[in-house]
């Protein structure tokens, strides 16, 4: 592995006692490579101010910081070792091809209301408490309201739209209820 690590904490996942959360300290600051990894993977959540980089894999989330990595929703410690290997391999690959990768320094932008509106059922039903679907989309974009308040979206008729919108919001770094993904 490209870093040495030490398992600092093994904690239960708060709502799923069958899963664990593992915090490991690492001896190598990988933050300079975050924009390269983002460009290389074409996905992930990069927050320059921390700095941090989050990757998702098989329903698990790995948050990489300067001096530690948090691995979330794991079954056991063995899985943590496998996932650390996976993270190390990605960074190793990126470092190997550093010259050919154009780093992506952009922070994930909040989704625009118009993009959100595209996936809303546009019934203007006001169940969410807003005057229109557009007003609701603005509130979602600003994280003042969450998508679950849109009742028509949570009907079978709009199942496809719901899936697309939830994934879109998730990719944009917003909180969504994973139960409905």
């Amino acid at each position: 592995m490209i870093f040495n690590f030490n398992i600092e904490k093994i904690l239960p996942c708060l709502a799923d006692s069958t899963k664990i959360r593992v915090v490991v300290s690492i001896d190598k600051d990988l933050s300079q490579y975050f924009p390269y990894v983002k460009a290389y993977l074409k996905k992930g959540l990069y927050v320059p101010k921390h700095p941090s980089f989050s990757i998702k894999k098989d329903g698990k989330t790995f948050n990489i910081y300067r001096d530690n990595i948090t691995l979330i929703k794991l079954v056991d410690e063995k899985e943590a070792l496998r996932d650390l290997e996976y993270i190390s391999n990605i960074f190793e690959e990126v470092i190997k091809h550093l010259d050919s990768i154009t780093p992506d320094y952009t922070q994930n932008k909040p989704p625009s209301p118009l993009e959100i509106l595209k996936y809303l059922p546009k019934t203007n039903c006001k169940i969410c408490g807003e005057e229109s679907c557009f007003a609701f989309a603005v509130k979602i974009s600003n994280e003042e309201k969450n998508v679950m308040l849109c009742q028509p979206l949570f009907t079978d008729e709009n199942k496809e739209k719901r899936g697309k919108l939830l994934n879109f919001l998730l990719e944009s770094g917003l909180d969504v209820p994973s139960e409905f993904l």
Binding site: L14, A15, V47, S178
Partner: peptide
């Protein structure tokens, strides 16, 4: 009511 998620906890549905 939360579950684990990137950066913090996944909010409760």
């Amino acid at each position: 009511g939360s579950a684990c998620k990137g950066g913090g906890e996944e909010p409760s549905h």
